[in-house]
Amino acid sequence: MATDELLPLYRQMLLIRRVEEEAARAYVQGKIGGFLHLYIGQEAIAVGTEAAIQKRDAVITTYRDHGFALARGMSARAVMAELFGRDTGCSRGLGGSMHMFDRENRFYGGHGIVGGHVAVGAGIAFRAKYLQQDDVTLCFFGEGATNIGGFHEGLSLAGLWKLPAVFVCENNLYSMGTPLVRSMPAKDLTDKAAGYSMARDRFDGHDVLHVRDRIREAVERARSGGGPTLVEILTYRFRGHSMSDPGKYRTSEEVEEKKRQHDPVRIARQGLLDAGTPEAELAAVDAGVEDEVRDAVRFADESPPPTLETMYDCVLAPEGGLDA
């Protein structure tokens, strides 16, 4: 295994983990409000898929979006400041945890209504096909979202028009408090791809390199005109659905067992050690991440909130600005 490939992915996953742990702390301190959906446990998916795509490719996801924002290249500062509701945040403090956006890095949010963004993702891919651009759109959602109309209509059109997209279901086994067995009759949710004559793939999502390698196939298919793929990646979220979820629907033994077996950050770190990376080198990486996170929190703390003027400016775009 090439440690030089794994090391930056490990660092990225650790950054996501640490940013979110600090966000959870800030939430308890009242510096972050509203809903905060943590990605902890699922980091290998955002980082592994990012490693398989190009900067020009597009990503769109749900409210569980901090990991993708960072994986796409957003700074920890911009993420933290958004969580703190500051003008320096990626959405100028107007969006918050659920609505992170970064046009420059082609990260298209951050969406709060389950299923609502799936067709939007297909629309980004539609533009690529129409303009004969060769970028691919990755659209992420949870397994719970595969029951709602928005998902089916998005896939229906993407399948019909062979859009260059990959629809990635992050199956973390629970849709809020509902385990999969109580929310859908299908055991393998890529069965749903058949109805749209779409390619499918299904694999485990705790090893970041494995995620990268497996998703490549679907990305290449989309890029080369082979149409969309429905991919199911099996994962687990270590925290509650959001900060306000007491998580009574699963046992702490189950959660602890998953943490022991499937922690993507730990798996990557162990992989690096096993491949001969010196502990000191990893410690230096860890320390760098700590600095970055501490800096992000300080930056967010010191940034001003958005003004009323910003709020009013962001209702309608100024006419003529797009063509200027």
């Binding site: 509203g34 509701g85 959405s91 107007l94 909130p305 958005p306 709020m311 009013y312």
Partner: peptide
């Protein structure tokens, strides 16, 4: 008359 902003200072005004 705006979509609800996230920042607490603004939400308190809206």
């Amino acid at each position: 008359d705006v979509p609800m902003p996230y920042a607490i200072e603004l939400e308190n005004e809206v």
